[in-house]
Design a protein around this nucleic acid. Structure first.
Lengths: 358, 358
DNA sequence: GCGGATGGCACAATCGATTGTGCACGATAG
DNA sequence: CTATCGTGCACAATCGATTGTGCCATCCGC
């Protein structure tokens, strides 16, 4: 098919025979350490030329086996099909490549069994490091990794058996809540004259911290908070939709401020809001914990919190770079606040770096 | 650290010594072919028990080297951080796992050099198949794959040197355009009494086919189409925003129907639309080629086309399963049409299967 | 002309698993 | 008592690359 090119993949032995040298010479040339091994420059050139014309590529299975290094770094995420995690994949790849590691990202569908299975397979391919992002059971993953001496870091959901880097959900929720309150207008109805929180799962670490941040901010401004102001109804859009519909019915209108705990929940909320007249919407200030480009072009203003993916993974790689796996702390990274100014479209108040999103 | 467990990773040789058998026996047991190799059941049990307590996992570098099989199947995509491609990753993983292959998904950032580099690295890890999704230069990728005898399929963007599976962009655009026209109301102004197309890049295969579909549908209903009705202004939101703003200014209002050629472009369009009074929006019917969950909760109705990711990759895997790499055809897969019915929220007319999106 | 210092490379072991082949032993048949 | 057969396993080669070690030639100095 190709002219001048062997049908089978060529090995260093093929090249050695063609060049009339030994395989170890070929290996030295292709690894760039031929000077240390005192190979003549003419020989090196000849071997390199042959490698090019025969399209030689090293067999990383063989080389990894011998060197007991694979060059692979793995990351597990719950799913690809999600703004937050797909953005994690994108940043992870870049940071891995900068370090000359080859990134492997696999999803585990929030299935604890698949999580462990996937990690075992990654280990069998001899990944050198693992980033455990959003695992349902990080400590079980840690146990497997420890048994195989694979260094790893938890990201997004913390564990107790490895260093963890998570979003500062408490701070983010607190800031968002304060901003919502300060931008909202008082309501004559006492039931409606307070902020509400909707969405998420109360046993989930992230949701719990956000609820705490919300509650503390509300207490700071209103002197107290009632349980009925928080409804961790789940993440699904339908659940959030009916949660807000109930709230609206019970209170005879929208509250002065509404904290929606994910973009998926926001989808449901917006579905309900579309059934209301525009002036009702104007009475409420909306915030969403998580970011979506489309959410910023909805017909009403929306405050958003964007998780700092750069920051989370940057810190994870810092831990890997410095091999500081032993202090099993939980490091918190502040998210970004995206608050449209009163006037128009401009946004943000934060010192955290932003990163461009196509 | 662990009690009862060696510090180093254990090999079949370690297990062999512990069990008092040979490494080949251990290998046979762990591969499940110990019956064919006439290993006593008692021996097999003993080896399996040892493998469990010592948390043995096979070294796939070694096993792959020997068997010259890696168990890996690769896919390259332009980026993760995008609804369409992240959904491709998700489906790809599932289809690969169903076939007991281990999926490797890597992004190439639409950079031709990185594309080739990435493919070469995947090959050096000895992937057995490659799905080339959205490559800027599929034929160069094909050349590398052919030189290394790696079977591959193009998806989304067609090439000439391998079987390609692409969206039926012509059909989708045609159907969307016809639906837009049929649901739109005539305008008194002749300039505004026709549909317009905005977004995309005319040299891009997908955009070109969509423009053809649009043009043919418009011709079918109006007897002709003018060049000014199509503006492939690029994908960026800003470009689409100003393109529609120009159109609005030139025509003295919105056209009766507007075809937006991507969700990113739609973001820009919506930004402009927010500056218009609601009754102006009511005069125009909007369609978007590509799907986004938030786009369906905008304040105005929107017809959408969702690419059939299941269908695209299902067909790609069918080609791999049946090893029919030789007919270098371009196979087209019809997208899904998501058309809200006049009344409310229900959607869709299509026989293509839908798949749930969390 | 001899010893030592390079220069230039080949040899062979090794990484961990797989797999074709063959040996030893006991049971059975004749 | 011996030939045959089946059972149960061990041996050794192999995949492709890496790397410690050592050999041979040449050259230089004296």
């Amino acid at each position: 098919m190709q002219p001048d090119v062997k049908k089978r993949r060529s090995t260093i032995y093929d090249l050695a025979e063609l060049a009339g040298v030994s395989a170890s010479t070929v290996s030295a040339v292709l690894n760039g350490n031929w000077k240390e091994r005192r190979i003549a420059e003419a020989t090196a050139k000849k071997v390199q030329r042959l490698a090019n014309t025969h399209r030689y590529t090293v067999n990383r299975q063989a080389s990894g086996l011998r060197k007991s290094r694979s060059g692979l770094i793995g990351m597990i995420i719950p799913m690809h099909d999600n703004r937050f995690f797909s953005s994690m994949s994108q940043v992870f790849e870049r940071l891995a490549r900068e370090r000359h590691w080859y990134p492997l990202v696999v999803s585990t569908l929030r299935d604890p069994a698949l999580e462990l299975e996937t990690v075992r397979t990654l280990i069998s391919y001899r990944i050198e490091y693992l980033v455990v992002a959003g695992a349902t059971d990080p400590d079980s993953v840690s146990r497997i990794c420890q048994a195989h001496a694979v260094a790893h870091v938890n990201v997004d959901l913390p564990g107790t058996k490895a260093t963890s880097v998570v979003s500062d959900n408490y701070w983010g929720a607190q800031q968002l809540t304060l901003a919502l309150i300060d931008r909202s207008r008082a309501s004559r109805s006492p039931k409606r004259n307070k902020p509400y929180f909707v969405g998420g799962i109360a046993t989930d670490n992230a949701t719990r911290r956000r609820m705490e941040g919300f509650a503390d901010a509300v207490t700071a401004r209103f002197g107290g908070v009632e349980a009925s102001q928080l409804d961790a109804c789940g993440y699904a859009a339908e659940l959030a939709e009916s949660a807000v519909e109930r709230l609206h019915r019970r209170s005879g209108g929208l509250p002065r401020a509404l904290f929606v705990n994910s973009t998926i929940a926001l989808e449901g909320v917006v579905r309900f809001l579309k059934t209301l007249p525009p002036d009702e919407l104007a009475a409420c200030t909306f915030g969403c914990y998580d970011w979506d480009p489309f959410a910023s072009v909805l017909s009403f203003p929306l405050l958003m919190v964007r998780q700092n993916v750069e920051g989370l993974l940057g810190e994870a790689f810092r831990i890997i770079d410095t091999r500081s796996f032993d202090d099993k702390r939980v490091i918190e990274i502040k998210p970004e606040l995206l608050f449209p100014s009163q006037s128009g479209d401009a946004s943000t108040t934060n010192d955290a770096p932003r990163h461009a999103v196509a």
